[in-house]
Computed example of a mutant assay.
Amino acid sequence: MIIDLTGRSAIVTGASGGIGKAIATALAAAGAKVAVNYLSSGDAAEEAVASIRSLGGQAVAIQADVSLAEGAEKLAREAKEAFGEPIEILVNNAGHLVQRLSNEEMTEDLYERIMDVNLKSAVFVAKAIIPGMKASGNGRIVNLTSVAAHNGGGPGASIYAASKAAVIAYTKGLAKELAGSGINANAISPGFIGGTAFHSTFTSAGAREATIQGIPLRREGTPEDVAGVALFLVSELSAYITGETIEVNGGMYMR
């Protein structure tokens, strides 16, 4: 079966590179009009849009700080204006470890920054988009969590892990809240995914190799591995799935 998203509009947050870019590209390739959200990487976002357009897709780059409620509202408003229709697909990909720091050293400011970018962003972008989805009677929300939500993460990442665990619980509650409205909400939990700024910034070469050796499939994942699952979850193939978290980790964590 071919997934066809023609006639549907989407937002992917944090989509200027890595997993977000791969998801935006996959949705556009399936026919969706895609808003590529970014915070500060404007050039990269425009490159992602240009790449999508070169392949015949439709996309627009929208700057917004989705860790702020007003930024989430701005993104929803500008995406609707750009496409002239309600957004029916939302992928909350924006997220960040921000900084590795032990609980002994944790500051209130860093705690809030981590929780805001990982959890608050998903909550308030969804809040801004849900009314339009309800009006159209059709919607798909996909929230990105992490394997850290299950295992507590690496050194200095306990708050990040907690924020991603909260995303899983939030997704379940949201799925129940929206049941009957034609809107499904699910989550994707990536494991060790290469080709992203996350591991380039926070993971040493030695830790990377050790992690790969512990993965049953013996390789790190790719952004495209995650994008394929996102494409499935926003399509009609997943019509009877809601409140679920799908693990994309090569077997490093099995439920």
Rank of each mutant, 00 (worst) to 15 (best):
I212L: 03
T222D: 14
P216F: 10
I114Q: 14
R113H: 09
V98P: 05
I246K: 02
I212R: 12
A197Q: 06
A205M: 03
P155G: 07
G243Y: 14
K164H: 03
L174D: 01
G139N: 03
V34W: 00
L27M: 01
N37M: 06
A26S: 12
T25L: 04
Q63S: 14
R255Y: 11
L101G: 15
G132S: 08
F198A: 10
D225I: 06
I19Y: 09
G191V: 05
G152L: 14
S158V: 15
M1S: 07
A169R: 09
A15S: 11
V125T: 11
S189N: 04
K134M: 10
A122C: 12
S102Q: 08
K172P: 08
I215T: 04
T203K: 09
D109E: 15
K172V: 11
A149N: 03
A230W: 04
K176F: 10
G194K: 05
T196H: 02
S54P: 05
S189F: 01
A32R: 07
G194M: 06
A166W: 04
A82L: 03
V147Q: 08
G71I: 12
T196W: 01
D109A: 12
L101K: 15
L90P: 00
M254R: 12
I241H: 01
N249G: 04
R8G: 15
G180D: 11
I183D: 04
F202T: 00
V123L: 15
T222H: 10
L231K: 01
E78K: 13
R53N: 04
V229F: 03
I11E: 05
I212F: 10
R113P: 10
A26W: 03
L178W: 08
L119H: 11
G57F: 08
L68H: 13
R77M: 05
E112T: 03
V147W: 09
I129C: 07
